[in-house]
Amino acid sequence: MNGLEKPGAAAVKERGWISAHKWLLARRLVQAGVLGLFLLGPLAGVWIVKGNLAASLTLDVLPLTDPYVFLQTLLAGQAVKTTALLGAVIVLAFYVLVGGRTYCSWVCPINPVTDLAHWLRARLGLKGGVQFTRRARYWLLAMTLAVAWITGSVAWELVNPVSMVFRGLVFGLGFAWTVILAVFLFDLFVSNRGWCGHLCPVGAFYGLLGTASLVRISAKRRSACDDCMDCFAVCPEPQVINPALKGADKGVSPVIRFSACTNCGRCIDVCAKDVFGFTTRFNSKEIDSDTPGEAPALRDAA
């Protein structure tokens, strides 16, 4: 970032707007698509998927269960039918493979809300606010599980903005719009990336699922990095970038292996040097910056 330019401006100049937003567009498409699938039933009478993110039934055969809510019912001391167990195992296996927090950036209905807050925060030049430790979410996760165990009820679901908003959109919002607004205003004025990046126990849970996930982002062309800082500016969890991007001298793999990485792909989008890309966690291969096919840096000329 040259201080004045928006992060990603260089990438837009280099590759065009669409290409410099392709992962963002893909994510928005998937988020809308997931919601759309659930809405197709109540709005158009086409019942491909029934239920909501807590549990659903696809084409009357495939059960899916949110493993986090499922765990809470187990802790609440309730014997659970195999349908829910099977659904939880399927979802669990999926996110263990593709990265737990992929849920956060590709599925969760709160993500567009907090992304918008972050965007507006940058646009309005709002600085400061309350900073929580990023570990707070793990504490909150432990707390929600403890409360489920102590009270014998799925207590977190009384306030969980993630499930409340999605369920609200599919079944009727009630006053759940106030929760959307609260999260938005919280992220905008109170705490930068406060909810998704620091507090949300759902994200913490899915993050833990993805500790050993296969799909990862790699700074595979890190030698081409020109320190423009655009990736840090757009990344919802910027602390995960540095070791992979700048660790060449220390022999650190270019693969971002932190479970906090949400696989959102924004770093891929905004990098004019094409440093980042999706790969597997085992692919530590680096691509030399002189590799033919790489576009010449046009940003200095521009």
């Binding site: 029934k50 807590a54 549990a55 309730q78 489920a148 009384l158 079944f171 009630g174 759940a176 929760v179």
Partner: peptide, 30 residues
């Protein structure tokens, strides 16, 4: 303790009987 608020019972109720509690209703949400 056992209900995960998925609404599948509401979907399969053939009558307008069951509904999911919305936020603000006097029934635990979902």
């Amino acid at each position: 303790g056992a209900c995960i608020r998925c609404g599948l019972c509401v979907r399969d109720c053939p009558y307008p009987t069951l509904s999911l509690a919305e936020l603000g209703d006097p029934v635990p949400v979902g």
